[in-house]
């Protein structure tokens, strides 16, 4: 197991305004998994991911990264932050350098790499996120929203993390930008065997890309399973203010109306196959 989270508790504020943000959260992440974390606003997702690279300190409970407790006094948290890359919501707001290339170099340089090595990492990272070379030396503030976001993600990728955590990376992007970004994540996952934790509000994206889904509610993880398992609990998810992919909704309605289809289809492609199969059997019309 790459990351083990054991009985994590955390609260914000103190006294009367104290609010428990995480309640006995326990789960573990094997190397190379593509996870999605869902839950409505305020369910503790962002708090949880900030614990994973040591930005927040747990009140009780522990997190083990490769078997070492990250809350130990002498644990090297800076190194942890390079191994567990965290991309915040709207990461483009963190850009600050005079040109794109220098901004991406910021992370590797903080790890103590010299200019050449940092530059090499930055170059690779910018390639991975698909920023063309003619944009390397323009100011990050002149880029489009989608490009800025990719540069910001490159800034984290340049540190070569083993685990990449992204908090709603597609928020505010156009459909094409979303698709490109998620395809890029999939590629990183496949080629570099990077562990990816995706916080998302789009059930379609979760269904399409994730291998495992965690559902959070009021600071606890209440479901943990494959997308198919989790999305079969339509009523419960809706009660929590969440949803299932539209296509799953559709398939479940079809089945309820008496069509002989398996309702557990979560992507459009799967659903298409399933409906065609039913047609071929001649059970429809």
């Amino acid at each position: 197991m790459q990351i083990i989270i054991d009985q994590l508790n955390y609260s914000y504020g103190d006294g009367a305004m104290r609010q428990q943000a995480l309640k006995d959260v326990s789960f573990s992440i094997p190397k190379g998994q593509f996870l999605a974390l869902i839950g409505h606003t305020g369910s503790g997702k962002s708090t949880l991911i900030q614990h994973l690279n040591g930005l927040l300190k747990a009140e009780s409970g522990s997190i083990y990264f490769h078997g070492e407790d990250i809350s130990d006094e002498d644990y090297n948290r800076k190194k942890l932050r390079s191994k567990v890359g965290l991309v915040f919501q709207y990461p483009e707001h963190q850009l600050f350098e005079t040109d794109v290339f220098r901004d991406v170099c910021f992370g590797p340089k903080n790890l103590g790499l010299d200019d050449n090595k940092a530059g090499l990492k930055a170059f690779e990272a910018l390639h991975q996120v698909g920023i063309p070379e003619e944009l390397f030396y323009v100011s990050p503030f002149e880029l489009s929203g989608g490009q800025k976001r990719r540069v910001a993600i490159a800034g984290v990728l340049a540190m070569e993390p083993e685990v990449l955590i992204l908090d709603e990376p597609t928020a505010g992007l156009d459909p094409r930008g979303r698709e490109e970004l998620l395809t890029m994540l999939k590629k990183l996952h496949k080629q570099k065997h990077m562990t990816i934790l995706l916080v998302s509000h789009s059930m379609e994206d979760v269904a399409k890309y994730a291998e495992r889904v965690l559902v959070m509610e009021k600071g606890s993880v209440i479901h943990d399973g494959s997308p198919k398992e989790v999305f079969s609990k339509r009523e419960e998810l809706k009660r929590l203010g969440l949803d299932v992919p539209e296509i799953t909704d559709f398939m479940q309605d079809l089945q309820r109306e008496g069509f002989p289809v398996n309702p557990q289809m979560i992507t459009v492609e799967e659903a298409r196959q399933e409906i065609l199969k039913a047609f071929k059997k001649g059970q429809l019309c």
């Binding site: 900030q50 690279n53 930005l55 800076k78 932050r81 390079s82 890359g85 965290l86 991309v87 915040f88 990461p91 707001h93 963190q94 910021f106 992370g107 903080n110 790890l111 800034g155 984290v156 540190m159």
Partner: peptide, 10 residues
């Protein structure tokens, strides 16, 4: 927020 984002970048 920005502080945390930059801390995350080392």
């Amino acid at each position: 927020k920005i502080m945390k984002a930059q801390l995350a970048r080392g």
